[in-house]
Design a protein around this nucleic acid. Sequence first.
DNA 1: TTGAAAGCGCTAACAT
DNA 2: ATGTTAGCGCTTTCAA
Lengths: 343, 343
Amino acid sequence: MTIKDVAEYSGVSVSSVSRVLNDHPDVSENVRKRVLEAVNALHYVPNNSARDLSRAQTDAIGLIVRGAGNPFFTPIISSIEKAILDAGYTMEVHQIPAGEDELAAGASLSRAKRLKGVVLLGGEFDYTAERTAVLDIPFVCCTFTNSFGTMDENAFSSVSIDDEAEAYRAVRYLTDRGHRKIAILLDSTHDRSISELRFRGYCRALTEAGIPQDKTLVQEIDYYDMEAAYRGIRELLVRRNDLTAVFTIADTMGVAVLKALHEAGKRVPEDCSVISIDGLEMSRYTIPTLTTLEQPKEELARQAVSLLINMIECRGGTAHIYLPAKLREGRSVEALSNADFQI
Amino acid sequence: MTIKDVAEYSGVSVSSVSRVLNDHPDVSENVRKRVLEAVNALHYVPNNSARDLSRAQTDAIGLIVRGAGNPFFTPIISSIEKAILDAGYTMEVHQIPAGEDELAAGASLSRAKRLKGVVLLGGEFDYTAERTAVLDIPFVCCTFTNSFGTMDENAFSSVSIDDEAEAYRAVRYLTDRGHRKIAILLDSTHDRSISELRFRGYCRALTEAGIPQDKTLVQEIDYYDMEAAYRGIRELLVRRNDLTAVFTIADTMGVAVLKALHEAGKRVPEDCSVISIDGLEMSRYTIPTLTTLEQPKEELARQAVSLLINMIECRGGTAHIYLPAKLREGRSVEALSNADFQI
DNA sequence: TTGAAAGCGCTAACAT
DNA sequence: ATGTTAGCGCTTTCAA
């Protein structure tokens, strides 16, 4: 079932069929009608590969999502799509597992779809010029930037929160309220990525408050999921039942921690406070509501697309933007009472 | 940057390059090495459109996800991918908004990628032979079936839970425990889809228990999200503060309901029980843990792929399988005490 | 307004 | 083992 069949069926040339299908002007009503009829009768659907191959260029922007299944990305993807469509472009999404190379995926998609640019969501933080060379069209990193990489800042754009600073702010929120035994739940203290940055912020806040670092309050978990976080906090509680606050680097972890604390007989926030970063929808429905630094998801998406289109249309160069997170106060943090201070 | 450039750079023909790229035998080590060098030096990435267009056939199975952002789908997608890969096929995912036509999307993807078959996730329940005609390759419906449609059962396969029966089971779980004032939170009582089926199960359980239907206990919400569910239950509580149990047709709703009840000063399960269908990961971490009929997500995925491959490989025909949900007892349901029974 | 024909980049016969 | 070449289905000049 090709355009040729449609042409034969309707008694016109393939180019006429193509014109009708692409809403070109200069097609007689008669031809249009016959072609449309044929398309319907034959259940014809164009072959995108052929179309993309022959089209001189598309107005497509690619979106590479690394680590689908992360609920944090869901609303961002929607916002990115909206922004791209609003700007008159089309979007091609491609999901890849967390372990894969988003640059290679972007490059591949770029050739396949003749992309004008690429938005990277959930990528790594250590690009080198060599690695990014495969991607020879404009690209923008959304929700992360190249903190650990060596490559030229002018080669790409990025929009994210300042992970170190926001983690600092979260922990500072706790120290300001008298907490000193503050645990952190993270992926790794040295993954050269988001987890390491947020760990740095945690350390700085402690140092500034005159609290010595204590390894027994740091809990690394193997996987980035709720089950792992749940087990992690339980381990932590065995070791340090005296902690008064927990900082989790992601809301998913925070939700699991609330549950584990509840089961351990600790009231939140009376006995233990919890704060987190991300601002997921589900965190609004925990009991108590999770206090979290909400990432400006829609704004991150909008600015990422905006920067990318600037690059594509050659007005303005690259830029690296940090957006502030917004404190969403729930009921999971409480100041330590004087009695507790004494301890 | 095409295969031709690579051929010129390495001093061989395009077919040799193609052979190297596709791991064909009968290529000398010398040629292979030179081609690979050229690919590296030129940062060459094949154009998938061209490749797909010229390849006689692929081993690709398509997956159409309708309504991304539904956390229920996330683990199913992973399982489907695994099953497809394990069977020696490749997967092409395509996400579409909840309102769009998944059959058309499947047909389009099918032409574009020369698919062998399609898995439909999150589709409608009312296919007609006419509508499905566009999709001229084997397809399977995963987590739903054609309850309201007219089309021939032999034209496709499906794997799902029995929505009516499982809803009945959930509500029966409540009536068995003495509940009579049982509210239901759903999308619509007549959407000719999942919501309507589960509503039927609710009605049957009530009837069987000799409980007359009461419209004031039925709450339709506009959107299928947590915020809407939260508002919905609050409205319901204004109207019927005497209810003793709530059945929500999705876990996302259940989570929001737990929160709203808590805020309304109702203890779960002492004052009000909550039961739901789906079995999301997050429902394990609510306080109290949500009691839910867990869909066998992995098994749904595996069987869907298995049925599809049977159809593709022409061994065995179509089938329509209902898998049982599994009761995951949390702490959100309690039997009514004798005192309550008296009311 | 319409049709004929030249590619788009790649794969897969078919030759050599 | 390697090269030549005919398509894959579509869009898009260029002519008519």
